[in-house]
Structures are given as C-alpha cells and as structure tokens.
C-alpha cells in the first residue's frame, strides 16, 4: 500500500515481512532499511509482521527487498494479500515438516546414544549422518537468527541454542577422531527438535489473527439492487455510486450507507451499533451498510460507498489496532540477553583457568577444551523451549474445559495484569434481547398478546413469548393495522383497541422510562387500560462479578452506544460507577486508548469485554480483548479470549487461569535455567561427567512438563 503525503515527494509504503521470530528481529530490519539511500524512516512491527517505510522520492522495491534480505528476512512487495497468506501458510508447513523429520531423527539418535538403557548400539558415523540434517537443516534458522543478532550486537535464545548445540555437535565429531571422549549428538538434536516444536505451536496460534478481518469483509453484501428509470437491476457492490437509489427487501442486507427516500422498516443494527432492539426507520432516516433489514421494503439513496462506509471504517480500525499491539516481551529472550554473554565469558575463564592452573599438557590442551565445551553445553537449557508452550497448552486446555477459549498466548499472559476492565452494555452485561419486565394489570395481557400476533414489531415478539409463558388464551383479532412509528390497532369482539406509544405519561410510566425501559400502553377508545414495559435485562451474576473485580482493585467501566438514561439504569443495577454513554461505534476503540493513557504516571492495563461487531476495534485495541461467546464471530476473532460459558463468573475464572499459568511459566523458566546454572560451576571445575549432564537435561525437561501438568489440578 502506498500513501502519498503532501505535495513533496515523501512516500509512505507498508509491506509484510516474513521470518521474524522476536522483537529484536524487528529492530534489525529497521536498521537495515534505514541504511537504504532515500529511506527517511522505517518502523517494523513484530506483532503484525509488517514494515512501514517513509521515503524521499521513490526507492525501488528491489532495494527495499534486498535490504530486508540482507538482514536475514523476506519482504513481500507488490503482491496481493493472498500471497502474504500463502507465504505464511508455506512457512508454517515448512516448520511442520522440520518438526516431524527432526523428531524422528532425534528419537533414533537418542535411543542409539544410550545403549546401556535401550540396548541398541549404533555406529557413531550413523549418529552423525542422522544428527547433521537436524543441526544444519532443521536448525538453520537458529544460525541465521544468531548471525542477525550478532550484527545487532544482541544475544537471544537463538544464540544460546546455536552455541550449546554447535559445541555439542562439533565436540562429538572430535570425539569420533579420538581427540576427546563422549558423544553429545543426542543433546544437540533433541534441543533443536524441542525448541522447533515450541515455535511451531506458537506460529500456529499466531496464524489465526487475520481471521477477524476476513470475517468482517464477509459481512458485506455482494450486490446491490439499484433503481434506475423505473427498473431494478442487481449490480456488484463495487459499481455502486454515491447518489444511486437502492431497493432493499425484507431479510436482505443493506449494501452501503445511505438515507431512506421511500418506505419504512425495522433494521437490525445490533451487529454494527450494539443497539439491542431493531430500529424503526422511516423516510429521512440513515441506514448503515451490512445491517439486516427485518420487515419492510424500502428505497434509499447511497451516501457513503467503498472505504467510507461504517463497516470499512471498522475494518480499518481493527487492522490498525492489531498492528499497533505491543510485541510480547519474551522472558526467555530477556534472560538470554544477559545469560549468553556471561556464559561465554565463563567458558573462556574456564579455558584460561585450566590452561594456566590445570595439569600440564603437551600439544592440544584437552582438559581446558573439554571443560570449555562442557560449560557451553550445560548452559543450553533443553527445557527452555518447553517452559512456555507446555504451560500455555495445559492452561488453554484447562480454560477450554471451563468454557474459556484462549486464542493467543499473549492474552493469557496479560489478563492477570489488568487493572481496568471495560464492559460493553448490550449483550455483555445485558442479555441483549428484550423481555417483559412490568405489566400494570395481568388482564390486559390477553388483549395485547392477541393484537401482537399480527405484528412484526420486534418488541411484539417479547410480549408474545411472555404471554405464552403465562399460558394466555389468544383471541381473534379483526381489522388489524400497524401504524408505523406509533403502534398497532385491531378489533377484538366488538371493541377497538390500540397498543403502542403512550400519548400522555404519568408518574409510573416516567419512572419506568428512567429505568431504561420501553413502555407501551393499551387503549380502548380514549380510555387507557394499562401498560406493559419491555427492557433488555441484566445477566445473572453481573453484580457479584463487578463487586469482586472492585475488591481486587480493578477499575470497572461501562461503555455503550445507548442513551444516558438506559446506560445509567443498567450501571445502577450492575453496580458500575464509571459510565460512558452515547459512544459512537467508531469511538469505542478511541475511548479504550484514552483509558490506557489516562493514568497519572501509572501504567494502565485495560481489558475490554464485548460481543458486537462494533466492539471489534475496541477488543483489538485493548491490552486484552474478551468476547462473549454468545456474540458475533467477528468479535470473537478480534478478541484474545472468548467466554463460551454463559456464566458471567467465567471472567473471574479467566483472570485466575492467567495468574496460575503465569506462575507455572515462571517456575518452569526457573527450572529450565536453574539446573543448568547450578551445573555451570561444576562444568567449569571439571566435575561434570556426561551422565550427570544427561541427567540434568532429562530432569529439567521432566520437571517442566510435570509442573505444567499441575495446572490441571489447580482450582480456578
């Protein structure tokens, strides 16, 4: 995508990048891109795997491509989105092949390396043949990343893997020639395989993030029926022009944004605006593209098309929010950035110490070299690749059991840190469907329900449902008529009734309206017989959860597109003190961003809980997006966590699950590094024998896996 900014020749270009696996990769590509003549600024995002480059004049794509290639990655320029998807799918497939092949090879190498355990004695040359592809084909990316890292003067987990496995591999080759003793082909192969497996699981989870946008695009109508010269013709959506008159029939989607010029209808806008009740639309009212026409047929004039429609704006916001999401700071990488240089220095110190103080050697300093390699091998924590993925896997499995679907690991990591939680109103705090809440006199229900049988009004459905529940006997209605915008009327027996908007409002009606309820009255002639109030009701358990969150010192907010009165009524019922009402769908994400920055030098970690399409940008913009499973697919795709369980308490469960999982991850990393840290001095002083090294490797891996499995037993 190219955006020209201003009359000068400043050009902005964004393109996807493939092959990044940590935040430092992004920094490296940025550096490489800014070195290209003509490039003023480059910003690379690890989360969205894309680069934005600001250039003076037009720098050729080849130059940009080769700059990225020099850094060790691939840029996809001048290709459609599909090819980016294809590239990603290809990469995932490649990784899968590597995991499968290296698993098989490593297993054979492992079994063959321990004849005393498995009784199979394999020739060292055979082990070398099997271990070589694992080391240099499956593990090649680690070498590339290490090289890139060194050019950036950083050490990451990759450096550690390359150092440890290469030391083990080349030491084993020397051992084949009798220079030293002991074989470590198995160590090298197993470490690479386990870490690749962890990477594969992570990449697979990450590949779903663009589904939300695909779903949003799928919501658009494909065609529009335009009215021209008295004829109606179906044309593709892309051919619709501003000012075109478009016919929409019942059950169809409104193709673009516009204003009704003829006819009227009820339109279900809940997908876009979050408004729970279908909205009554008459001539002059504006309609939103992709909403569903419920009852009537109407003609409207297109006012906004293409990228200007509300849905397109929402798509843009979701894209933006997803790409600005902060990259996950990997704990292992952070530890490695200190750990690796220290280990390197220790290994040199070991060599010097043994050379100067050790037994006198003539020719090759065997002891000093053996102990240098021992330090490097033992420093490479085999279990490190398992520490996070196993805990996340068990944690997400446990969550799924309880109806908490975790889409990306980052959300599970973040949710326990939240100190502000924002709830959408409709469908999240409330049930999202209108229900009868008050009936002034039970006798009027028979008449109202009988009248409503012929009505298409959405509130009518709520009254009919209520009447059936109360086992009301329906009566025959004649001369039924719906008066758009007012109500319905009909004759039962010989009496004429009207049911609809109240013309005069008494105290009791005003009080109900203040509670956010819609009140309708039944009249016989001029005499008012009674009223029925309908409202969207609060879900069970909301109040308890809000109180619990506040006890945990989490600030609770409610944000809604609904009017102040309804918002306040629901907030009062649920015990929420902070309310943002009349927030337009496009402003919800903005409000979340404001909340994130509002703190006085205190970092706010904001979670957003929502269900509608209008919530998608906010779900993506929040530190953690939590979607209600009863909501739309798009909301679920934009969120990091989906609560399938109707029980509102699952929000608390998700927070607890995150806490437990993070605790386990930290413990795992401790075990993964711990064994090795303890054994480094042993290796440096020449006390380490191969059996002890193998034992440490196996013990740290087993303790990490067992510790992760402990999550299954923890009560959340």
């Amino acid at each position: 995508m190219i955006i020209k900014t201003g009359p000068t020749s400043l050009v902005k270009k964004s393109f996807p990048i493939v092959g990044m696996h940590c935040a430092s990769c992004a920094r490296l590509i940025e550096k490489s891109l800014t070195r290209v003549p003509g490039v003023l600024n480059a910003s690379v995002n690890y989360g969205s795997e894309s680069a934005v480059v600001e250039m003076e004049g037009n720098v050729s794509d080849t130059k940009l491509e080769s700059a990225v290639k020099n850094a060790g990655y691939r840029a996809i320029l001048n290709k459609s989105n599909l090819s980016k998807e294809e590239e990603k799918a290809k990469e995932l497939k490649n990784l899968k092949t590597k995991v499968i092949v290296s698993s098989i090879l490593s297993l054979i190498v492992f079994v063959g390396s321990f004849p005393e355990w498995f009784g199979i004695n394999l020739n060292p040359i055979f082990l070398l043949v099997l271990a070589t592809p694992v080391q240099f084909w499956a593990g090649w990316d680690f070498y590339l990343a290490t090289w890139s890292g060194l050019r950036n003067r950083t050490a990451s987990m990759d450096t550690l893997i390359v150092m440890g496995t290469s030391a083990a591999f080349f030491y084993s080759i020397l051992s084949m020639f009798g220079v030293v003793e002991g074989m470590y082909f198995d160590t090298a192969a197993v470490i690479i395989t386990l870490i690749l497996l962890g990477r594969f699981l992570e990449a697979k989870a990450k590949s779903h993030t663009s589904d939300a946008i695909k779903k949003l695009l799928g919501l658009q109508a494909k065609t529009a029926r335009i009215v021209k010269d008295g004829r109606e013709i179906d044309i593709p959506l892309a051919d619709v022009k501003v000012g075109d008159l478009i016919r929409v029939r019942p059950g169809e989607k409104v193709p673009v944004d516009g204003v009704i010029t003829r006819g009227s209808s009820f339109i279900d806008e809940s997908m876009v605006t979050g408004e729970s009740l279908p909205v009554d639309k008459i001539v002059g009212a504006s309609v939103i593209g992709s909403t569903i026409n419920k009852s009537g047929s109407f003609i409207f004039k297109a006012t906004k098309i293409g990228s200007e429609t509300m849905l397109s704006q929402i798509i843009e916001m979701v894209k933006e929010a997803q790409s600005t999401k902060a990259p996950i700071a990997r704990m292992a990488d952070l530890v490695s950035s200190y750990f690796v240089p220290i280990v390197l220095m220790l290994s040199i110190l070991t060599f010097v110490g043994w050379y100067v103080l050790g037994p006198i050697t003539i020719g090759f300093p065997v002891n000093a070299f053996i102990n240098l390699v021992a330090v490097l091998i033992i420093a490479c924590p085999c279990a490190m690749g398992l520490a996070t993925p196993t805990a996340i896997m068990v944690g997400t499995g446990k969550g799924a059991e309880k109806g908490i679907l975790v889409k990306d690991a980052a959300s599970l990591e973040t949710v326990h840190k939240i100190n502000t939680i924002v709830f959408d109103k409709t469908g999240t705090l409330t049930k999202g469907i209108p229900m009868v809440t008050d009936v002034s006199d039970p006798k009027i229900l028979t008449i109202v329900a009988s009248l409503e049988q012929g009505s298409e009004h959405p509130l009518g459905g709520a009254i009919l449902g209520y009447a059936m529940e109360k086992k009301v006997k329906f009566q025959k209605v004649t001369n039924f008529r719906a008066i758009t915008g007012f109500g319905i009327e009909g004759i039962i027996g010989s009496k004429k009734y009207f049911f609809g908007k109240p013309d005069k409002k008494g105290e009791s009606i005003k009080k109900l309206e203040d509670e956010g309820k819609t009140v309708m009255i039944l009249k016989q002639g001029v005499k008012t017989l009674g009223f029925i109030a309908v409202a969207d009701t609060l879900k069970e358990g909301v109040k308890g959860v809000v109180k619990h969150l506040e006890n945990k010192k989490i600030e609770v907010w409610m944000v809604t597109g609904d009017n102040q009165r309804t918002a306040k009524a629901i907030a009062k019922l649920s015990g929420i003190k902070n309310v943002l009402a009349e927030v337009l769908p496009e402003d919800k994400a903005q409000k979340i961003k404001e909340l994130k920055n509002v703190a006085f030098k205190v970092t706010k970690c904001v979670a957003f809980v929502g269900d509608g399409i209008n919530d998608a940008p906010a779900l993506a913009a929040a530190d953690v997006g939590i979607a209600m499973g009863t909501g739309t697919d798009v909301a679920m795709e934009s969120a990091g966590i989906t609560l399938l369980n109707k029980d509102f308490k699952s929000i608390l469960m998700a927070i607890n699950l995150s806490k437990s999982t993070m605790k386990i991850i930290k413990q795992n990393l401790f075990w993964a590094f711990g064994y090795n840290v303890i054994l480094i001095p042993a290796a440096a002083f020449g006390l380490l024998n191969p059996m002890l090294a193998s034992f440490a490797m196996a013990a740290s891996s087993i303790s990490v896996v067992l510790n992760s499995l402990r999550l299954n037993k923890i009560k959340i």
């Binding site: 003067r153 950035s337 690796v340 240089p341 390197l344 220095m345 040199i348 060599f351 010097v352 050379y355």
Partner: peptide
C-alpha cells in the same frame, strides 16, 4: 609463568573484555 600461559591469560581476558564491550557497551548509535 611460562610465555604460553601468559599469552592465553592475556588473550582470554582480552576476549572476555571484547565480549563485555560487544554485548553491553553499545547502542549509542540508536
């Protein structure tokens, strides 16, 4: 101390210093 041991000691310390400088004393150019 024999000349070879002195050489290894000085070389080793130099290498350690280089590693320290390479990884920790940096990023002034960012």
């Amino acid at each position: 101390m024999s000349p070879d041991k002195l050489l290894v000691t000085v070389g080793g310390l130099g290498l350690m210093g280089f590693i320290w400088w390479f990884f920790f004393e940096k990023k002034h150019d960012n």
